[in-house]
């Protein structure tokens, strides 16, 4: 009956903030909520605005202190320089290629692995899962040299596909860890119901688990894309060919020892944010429908 007083009964129970016992409490709460979120968002976005603002000012070697939130001498010259003469377009495409393929393989492979850990008992399961977790806990920087020697042996230096291979492998531990938790939450009754129908494990994985884990898969995809898009140290180590540079490498090239082309660095960094945001917006509409909602359908 309380839900009847709300304008959107279908979403009315999705958060505690909307469960006021009567109508009078709903409004101020919503306003308060909006205000809090607004303040939080402003704080979060402030440094980013400084970056965007610097990218829209004439190129400087030193950053303005204090940084501006709105550009003083507005110009788009850094963007035309970045996109025109500085090969950022190519780096952008390289990064896109690497990030899209990595995302695809990470989500595909990790969901299989996570399913095995979530739904089966098998020998060495805990040992193997422990190994995966150890992969998350060992600092990656000491692995660079052995990994680089491996990449050289496999002929995967100076190659975008080589980057995809190593990024995919590097993200499996995290993504498996993420997805396993979600697969475990799929109600066993649904699984058993389908098992009785005589479907194979693989069919259940495709027809039941993957659709139910959609929010988790979307989350995994968002992070996998970001991880591959943003990575710097490994790319620096294995990529020497200027034509195979990813965006972070292209941006780093403008940071000099004794002064950087800040306008270009910040314009490049601002452009670099766009695809990740697009992926996030695309992914986050899948995050809304929860696992339970899916199960009830």
């Amino acid at each position: 009956m309380t839900t009847l007083t709300q304008s959107e009964p279908s979403r009315s129970t999705s958060a505690p903030g909307e469960h006021g016992p009567n109508r009078r409490q709903i409004k101020p709460l919503t306003v308060l909520r909006f205000f809090l979120v607004l303040v939080g968002a402003c704080v979060m976005v402030l440094p980013f605005l400084m970056m965007v603002s610097t990218s829209l000012e004439p190129n400087t070697a030193t950053l303005p202190t204090p940084p501006h939130i709105f550009p003083l001498n507005f110009t788009t010259e850094n963007y035309s320089e970045a996109l025109g003469s500085s090969n950022f377009g190519l780096y952008f495409l390289n990064s896109l290629y690497v990030a899209v393929l990595t995302t695809f393989f990470v989500v595909l492979i990790s969901s299989l692995t996570a399913f095995a850990f979530a739904r089966f008992d098998f020998r060495f399961k805990n040992v193997l899962f422990g190994l995966l977790l150890a992969g998350l806990m060992i600092p990656g920087i000491v692995l660079i040299v052995p990994q680089f020697v491996l990449a050289k042996t496999l002929g995967m230096t100076d190659s975008l596909n080589g980057l995809v291979f190593f990024y995919t492998a590097g993200q499996i531990a995290f993504t498996t860890f993420l997805l396993r938790g979600f697969f475990e939450r799929v109600p066993k009754e649904l699984d058993e119901a389908m098992t009785v129908d005589g479907t194979t494990v693989f069919t259940r994985f495709i027809r039941l688990y993957l659709p139910l884990a959609r929010p988790a898969l979307a989350t995994a995809a968002v992070f996998a894309f970001l991880g591959a898009w943003d990575e710097f140290v490994w790319a620096l180590t294995v990529i020497s060919d200027a034509d195979k540079r990813t965006l972070p490498l292209g941006i780093a090239a403008f940071q000099g020892e004794h002064g950087s082309a800040w306008g270009l660095v910040f314009a490049g960094s601002t452009l670099a944010v766009i695809p990740v945001i697009i992926v996030y917006v695309a992914g986050q509409k899948h995050l809304i429908s929860g696992i339970t909602a899916g199960a009830v359908k």
Partner: peptide, 24 residues
Amino acid sequence: VPWAFAAPGMILFIVVVGYPLLRS
């Protein structure tokens, strides 16, 4: 069956992370 599901990920992980880890 569980091994078949786990294999692609684990093999990739063991080669690219596990082996360098051991080496390290």
